[in-house]
Amino acid sequence: MGALDHLSNMFDCSSGNHKRHKQRKQMQTVEIKVKIDCEGCERKVRRSVEGMKGVTSVTIEPKQHKLTVVGYVEPQKVLSRVAYRTGKRVEFWPYVPYDVVAHPYAQGTYDKKAPAGYVRYDQDPSMNHFARANSTEVRYTTAFSDENTNACAIM
């Protein structure tokens, strides 16, 4: 916003009910998990979001139960519209490729329902699902040392 725009807004002599400029929504990609059983379900899901204002493209992958919407939309509005129009249980796409995750087969990450090559996304990386070794386990694992053969605790 330039200086002239700012000054013109300060000294606006028009009536008091002028509209503020709306900020334009950013281009976003919204991925949603929705159960798609047949071609009728696929058509219903596609039609639920194609009519939305700002939608640029709609991609459906029925085998993965994945809906991808690209456009100038708000993700929460897309999610609620699909749920309302189709009557299906929907959620944001919770999976990421297993290459991205440090421990893909950890307790909170691995999901049997995930498509091939994907694991559940762990939103909180600070929360560690691995149990820490207690002092008894540390003693047993350090009892033998390949580097220092004289450090054997048993012999």
Rank of each mutant, 00 (worst) to 15 (best):
M1R: 08
A3C: 07
A3V: 12
D5R: 08
H6I: 07
H6G: 07
S8R: 01
M10F: 03
F11D: 04
D12H: 08
D12Q: 01
C13Q: 11
S14I: 01
S15L: 10
S15C: 08
G16A: 12
G16I: 08
N17G: 06
H18M: 06
R20A: 11
Q23N: 06
M27Y: 12
T29K: 09
T29R: 03
E31R: 15
K35G: 00
K35C: 04
D37N: 13
C38P: 09
G40K: 12
C41P: 14
C41T: 12
E42L: 10
V45K: 07
R46T: 15
S48H: 04
V49W: 04
G54L: 02
G54V: 09
V55H: 07
S57W: 04
V58M: 07
T59A: 13
I60R: 01
E61K: 06
P62H: 14
Q64H: 10
H65K: 03
H65F: 09
K66S: 11
T68V: 10
V69T: 04
V69G: 11
G71K: 01
Y72V: 01
K77C: 03
V78K: 05
S80E: 15
S80C: 10
R81E: 14
R81G: 08
R81T: 15
R85I: 02
K88P: 01
K88A: 15
F92R: 02
F92S: 01
W93I: 08
P94S: 07
D99V: 11
V100T: 12
V101P: 04
V101Q: 13
H103G: 00
H103W: 03
A106S: 15
Q107K: 15
D111C: 13
D111S: 13
K113D: 14
A114D: 05
A114K: 08
A116W: 01
G117S: 12
Y121P: 00
D122Q: 08
D122C: 04
P125C: 02
S126D: 11
F130Y: 14
N134Y: 03
T136L: 09
R139P: 00
R139H: 07
T141H: 07
F144S: 05
F144T: 10
F144M: 05
S145V: 01
D146C: 05
N148W: 02
T149P: 13
N150W: 06
A151T: 11
C152D: 14
I154K: 00
M155N: 09
M155K: 12
M155C: 14
M155P: 13
